[in-house]
């Protein structure tokens, strides 16, 4: 540091060096990782998908801004976390949903789930998932109206939306399912962002390479789903490729705020997510259980943290009974 412009002695508290990583940069990386899936959603489901995504992002960011203003807290719109919530929420909606419900869900996600508990880092469950469940409970018929990809290309697209079942619902009903290729590239009915496994995997690889997420949670989640499916005598590949497992395992379960910090905790958490998902899929009345599984494990996270607490280097061994 031979810079003559610096004062001769600057006194500040540590840390003195900063790697340049910040919440905003991490969230930007997550947004970049979500781009492939968003593009595929736009290709498969057309302007409705684009509209839903833009609306969700817009209303999430706006709600965040208004909440922070009303609560007279430091403004956090700039860290992009609300935008990530918006994209994730849009990914969890059916393409033909009335936009007004999307806005309602966004407001619920940010105002109720995130800001009422203190904003970023304080929410006890994933805001996007909680909003999805809120919408699913409130408007069950709207939230399970699926349409086939490319429906917008047909002549009278507005009136002629061909509805279809998701692969999981088809499997539950015992009828045929799409081929593995169709499942992998997302040519089937489903939520906006969950259909194209390929795009989600690309985003996940990017996050892993940038070290935004660690592989424990997604691997344990997916592994448990596959093993449970195998044990139940069902096709594990179909269970991995259909529904929201990929989206949930890569982008939702790995949320920093609501997943455990330690490796042991993450493994426990991932396995728990997988088990609950498969329990709901196999025995529940709903065809899909990823969102409930993740939210339930989110709630358990503080307890997992306590169980897997690591002792600081050099500290005394903890006495029994804390």
């Amino acid at each position: 540091m031979e810079n003559q412009n610096l004062p001769k002695l600057s006194v500040s508290s540590s840390p003195h060096a900063h790697c340049g990583e910040s919440t905003a940069i991490i969230m930007q990386d997550v947004l970049i990782a979500l781009v492939p899936a968003a593009l595929m959603a736009a290709v498969y489901f057309g302007w409705r998908a684009v509209l839903l995504m833009l609306l969700c992002i817009g209303s999430c960011v706006l709600t965040e801004y208004v909440c922070r203003r009303v609560m007279k807290r430091p403004q956090t719109v700039g860290d992009f976390s609300a935008a990530v919530t918006g994209v994730l929420l849009a990914f969890n909606l059916p393409p033909t949903l009335n936009p007004i419900y999307a806005v309602l869900g966004s407001v619920f996600a940010i105002a109720v789930v995130k800001q009422m508990f203190g904003g970023i880092g304080m929410n006890f469950v994933n805001p996007a998932l909680a909003a999805r469940i809120f919408l699913l409970i409130s408007f069950p018929s709207h939230m399970s109206r699926w349409s086939i990809p490319f429906f917008y290309l047909s002549a009278n697209a507005d009136t002629d939306i061909v509805s279809t079942a998701t692969p999981l619902a088809q499997a539950a009903a015992g009828s045929g399912r799409p081929s593995y290729t169709d499942l992998f590239i997302g040519l089937h009915g489903g939520c906006l962002g969950e259909t194209c496994t390929l795009a989600l995997l690309i985003g996940g690889m990017y996050l892993l390479l940038r070290r935004i997420i660690t592989p424990e949670v997604p691997l344990c989640f997916l592994g448990t789903v596959a093993l449970t499916a195998l044990a139940a005598g069902q096709n594990p590949l179909v269970h991995l490729l259909s529904g929201g497992v990929m989206l949930g395992a890569i982008f939702m379960a790995t949320d920093y705020t609501t997943c455990p910090v330690n490796r042991a905790g993450k493994i426990f958490y991932g396995v728990g997510c997988g088990l609950i998902t498969m329990t709901i899929r196999l025995f529940g009345s709903l065809p899909e259980g990823v969102s409930y599984a993740i939210v339930l494990m989110n709630i358990l996270t503080p307890h997992i943290e306590t169980l897997t607490q690591s002792s600081p280097f050099g500290s005394e061994v903890r006495n029994s009974g804390k």
Partner: peptide, 17 residues
């Protein structure tokens, strides 16, 4: 009207909320 009633508020979680 504009939208359907929000069923959430009739159910138990909405009550607690």
């Amino acid at each position: 009207g504009m939208m359907q009633p929000i069923l959430f508020f009739s159910l138990a979680p909405g009550g607690f909320f």
